[in-house]
Simulated assay, not measured.
Amino acid sequence: MKSAQVKLPEMRAEGISALRALSDPDYQQRVWIDRIYPKPNFYDDFTLNVNTLYDDTTVLADPEAALGYTLASEAEVRAMRMLADALDSALESVGRAASDAEFMASGSWPGVVASARDALATLTEWSEFARSARHAQAVRAAFPGSCRRRLLRASPV
């Protein structure tokens, strides 16, 4: 799928941000539990990221419906389905009213982190491809024939 076919790239970026948070236990401890925020007027927690992925972007509520809007491939749909399964399992085993610390201490949390890492890798792989494709398109537009071919071969694409 081409980058132009993802209709909601800003919403996709929000989803990727939530995946970064869910895939990083050090960040979770520092920000969600210890409340050491990276800048003033910043807030983040488990619930905010879950709401972003289920409600705001709907990539976990219905990954198939997000294809073409915020997800770019069937591989991304599968990765988000796996994360949804892991999160649903954690929410059921720990309880939806549990604290962030209780979720992180649960036996199901490593599965959530692993699934979020896999999903993040899948989505950012596409994002890297889209950036490299945009780079190649910009080089083609800016430079003539033989010069362009040399630039594209030298590019880390």
Rank of each mutant, 00 (worst) to 15 (best):
T52D: 00
A141K: 13
A98S: 10
D100Y: 08
Y69R: 13
E92N: 15
S115T: 08
M11H: 06
Y54M: 09
A90R: 02
N41F: 15
A66V: 04
P63I: 07
A66K: 04
Q5P: 01
A142S: 14
E74A: 12
L83Q: 01
S99R: 04
V112T: 05
A65N: 07
Y37G: 05
E10R: 13
R149Y: 11
R12K: 10
A65M: 08
R12W: 10
M11A: 15
L22C: 07
G68Q: 08
A66L: 05
T70Y: 08
K7S: 14
T122D: 01
P110H: 07
T124I: 13
V31Y: 01
L71S: 02
E125Y: 06
R131S: 14
A79V: 05
L53W: 03
M11W: 06
Y54D: 04
N41D: 14
A75C: 06
S93R: 15
F46I: 07
N49P: 04
V50D: 00
L8C: 03
E14F: 12
A119H: 05
G107S: 09
G68A: 11
L120K: 00
M80E: 05
E128A: 15
F143E: 00
G15C: 07
V112I: 14
Y54L: 09
A116H: 03
E102C: 05
D62E: 10
S99T: 15
L19W: 03
T57S: 08
V50W: 04
M1K: 01
L151W: 01
A119R: 02
D88F: 07
S108M: 04
A138T: 07
T122C: 15
P38H: 09
S17E: 08
E128D: 14
A116F: 10
L87E: 01
R150V: 15
D118F: 15
A65K: 09
S3P: 04
A84N: 11
A21R: 03
S115C: 04
F143P: 00
R78F: 02
R134Y: 02
Y37K: 03
L151M: 09
M1L: 13
V6E: 00
S115L: 09
E64H: 09
S106P: 03
M82I: 13
A18T: 06
P156Y: 13
P25D: 06
A141V: 03
F42Q: 07
A98F: 05
F42W: 12
M11Q: 13
M82T: 11
A121G: 15
